[in-house]
Design a protein around this nucleic acid. Structure first.
Lengths: 144, 144
DNA sequence: TATCTTGCATCGTGGTACGATATAAAAATA
DNA sequence: TATTTTTATATCGTACCACGATGCAAGATA
């Protein structure tokens, strides 16, 4: 057993809190920018991320389950998200011939166009901000 | 004027989409981890971030307006968030003597203890994941 | 065929942020 | 000083979104 106190294995100091807070601030800023870009196009960031994930998938399409896993969502949350995207005309469902339980989701022409516009803006913002993110990450003090 | 087409200033290619999608995936993973840690302690990530921001502030306290700006929220959204934190016994309001319009928010003893526990877990997880984030960022193809 | 597993869908609920609006204090101006 | 404007917090109704619980259909297994 160690000699040090066991319950509070030593509190974080101000510098560690500052580092952690700084990183979260950078992330919030990044996400706020993303929300602004998406919002201007009438989308939420989740919808944008769904479109992006589908576009970046192997053949440009994914099952709902795969999308759920990619987005770290429950199956039925992905179902609802795809439902909203379909209603907006950005994606289309189609039953998988191999396994009729599966539903394959792919971008519509409109969805692909909308995504491309947003993705370019995001990429531009990221190349401007990535140094800040990396700085805030590398500035994180070691915890032990 | 440039000779290139002006409307679609050239679409993003697969590699660019993969890079962008990879970065977002890393972020989602990070946030999902954070949600898991916070959830186990009965908090949302927003509440955690609010506690963290207050703790990291100059003298361990902030006005509601300052918190709103820090969290990239509207004033009244911060009001509500602070209300929920106060109800949970994690922060306390106190009127600013200098400017009686202001309300100063600070952590309660319980809030500080809860935050410290969560912050240490986050810091631990971050030092494991930051390389992934940095890698996904540096792997981003240049857009122009 | 009977049972189990997997994948998608539906419904009701809760949390959270927002716009619109209100109230009070401070600052600016007449 | 009195009036107006600005600033800071608060309240209310609305909408979005993810979740748990549950259901249904298709495939897998016995």
């Amino acid at each position: 057993m160690k000699a040090r106190a066991k319950k509070p294995p030593q509190s974080m100091d101000d510098a560690q809190y500052a580092g952690l807070a700084g990183f979260r601030r950078a992330l919030r800023q990044l996400m706020a920018d993303s929300e602004r870009i998406c919002g201007a196009a009438g989308l939420t960031t989740q919808r944008f991320q769904a479109l992006l994930a589908i576009r970046a998938a192997a053949d440009g399409s994914m099952s709902i389950g795969a999308l759920a896993e990619e987005l770290v969502l429950r199956h039925h949350s992905a179902v609802e998200l795809v439902g909203r995207l379909e209603l907006a005309g950005l994606v289309q469902r189609q039953s998988d011939p191999q396994d009729k339980r599966r539903v394959i989701v792919s971008l519509t022409r409109q969805g692909a166009a909308r995504l491309d516009e947003l993705a370019r803006e995001h990429a531009k913002g990221l190349s401007e901000n990535r140094d800040i993110i990396i700085a805030s990450l590398t500035a994180l003090p070691e915890t032990d």
